[in-house]
Design a protein around this nucleic acid. Sequence first.
DNA 1: GACGTAAGGCTTACGCCGTAAGTCTCCTCC
DNA 2: GGAGGAGACTTACGGCGTAAGCCTTACGTC
Lengths: 249, 249
Amino acid sequence: MTSPQTTGTPARTALTRARVLESAVALADRDGLGALTMRSLAREVGIEAMSLYHHVASKEDLLDGVVDVVAAEIQDAVALLDPLPDDAPPSAWKPTMRRQILTARSVLLRHPWASTVLETRTSFSLHIVRYCDSLLGLMRRGGFSWDLVHHAMHALGSRAFGFSQELFEPDGASAGSAADGGAREGADDEATAMLQQMAEQVPHVVQMLAEVAHDEPGANLGWCDDQTEFEFGLDLILDGLDRLAGRAA
Amino acid sequence: MTSPQTTGTPARTALTRARVLESAVALADRDGLGALTMRSLAREVGIEAMSLYHHVASKEDLLDGVVDVVAAEIQDAVALLDPLPDDAPPSAWKPTMRRQILTARSVLLRHPWASTVLETRTSFSLHIVRYCDSLLGLMRRGGFSWDLVHHAMHALGSRAFGFSQELFEPDGASAGSAADGGAREGADDEATAMLQQMAEQVPHVVQMLAEVAHDEPGANLGWCDDQTEFEFGLDLILDGLDRLAGRAA
DNA sequence: GACGTAAGGCTTACGCCGTAAGTCTCCTCC
DNA sequence: GGAGGAGACTTACGGCGTAAGCCTTACGTC
């Protein structure tokens, strides 16, 4: 019995697929998706890279696994919401669905990398499908035909999970890759000059920036409140669906 | 800035940034985005990988460049549409914008990889911004406040460029990564058995698949007509915006 | 013409990545 | 107490983006 004190414990069998996936989520949360490599994850859990393959079949399988972890988080969060009572009117589908989707969003906001990974999945975990199932059930209770339910899921797209690709999200100045060569310093001057120069090329963009910027709290750029914009788009779709289902706005 | 390629010896100077970008687009069209590497692109244009860095600053710059090429294609295609006459009524914004967006979509459908790249850009080319500018202009002519214009762009998101992430797009069977270990053969049997087994876990999903599948032309899965679904979601949003701008549906 | 310059190629090399293949070492169960 | 396998480790391969340097050619200037 040549076992030192460290191996007399279940320390050897402590590592499971679940623990690997949890660590992967934690690593991505901390250092970003780019830092989630087999080698760095192995370091994180204290083994060598190749040993990870005892718990996941491949990197793709690992990514499948981490979105499953996040999906489970979503399900847990949604389950904590007040359930829809049996005698709720059909119109109750809308606020309930709204709440579920915003709950899913709140989870995804804790894992900013997750939406990117989710988008690249080619198959979906049971947790994801169950979440969708609950959305479908809500719409059926709202009187939707199956056809409308189907269209609705497509119309919502990733919004059903609480995110939408914000094409202009990144902070700071944008545009200019084709306009000129660079000049990366003096962001303020650069942005101002660029706007000036762009005023004739894209007058509406310039004017919108000017108009919308100054009656919002934040500074001149980064003036978008993502949450507000998400809810605006969500409500636009939900209201449209409600109307198609036969109710007035 | 210095463009002396007008001289009589074009043999050496034949390779330009524009030609590199065109080749990159062609390569991605033919072999997919994954095949677009510096080495393979260099092989494509007949030089070595490192020589590409005389025409693009980095891989990121290359990707900026290829979306710019696609964006220019979109602009060209949109420019061919009938212009909105000066005496058009405000309500004309909607069909016009619809047509522009569907035109953009038709271009992106020719370059299926482009939406993925577009999503990952951190700054936008002049072509892209100009396309947005024309959309903004249309909405202004429709009587939108600047605030509504702003919200509208967020609500449209990537749909403004003609794509939306179809979360269930991939053909064939989905789901099951968490349910069991694998069984990758006999897709039909597998799918049927899985549905059977999932019927109690996700009843609505199973029922929707059954209901919607048989009254559509295509086979049991892959029953979604992407174009129809895209237009459904687009119209839902455009109608909602029109209503917010003060017109009835 | 001669020559300096630099644009536009080439080669080599580095440090990442995912992972195929093989080995060692215990733990568990007959 | 011997077999077998789970779970770790080691080594190695090919591909990626790209830093760094060298060589050749074409052009502007005298």
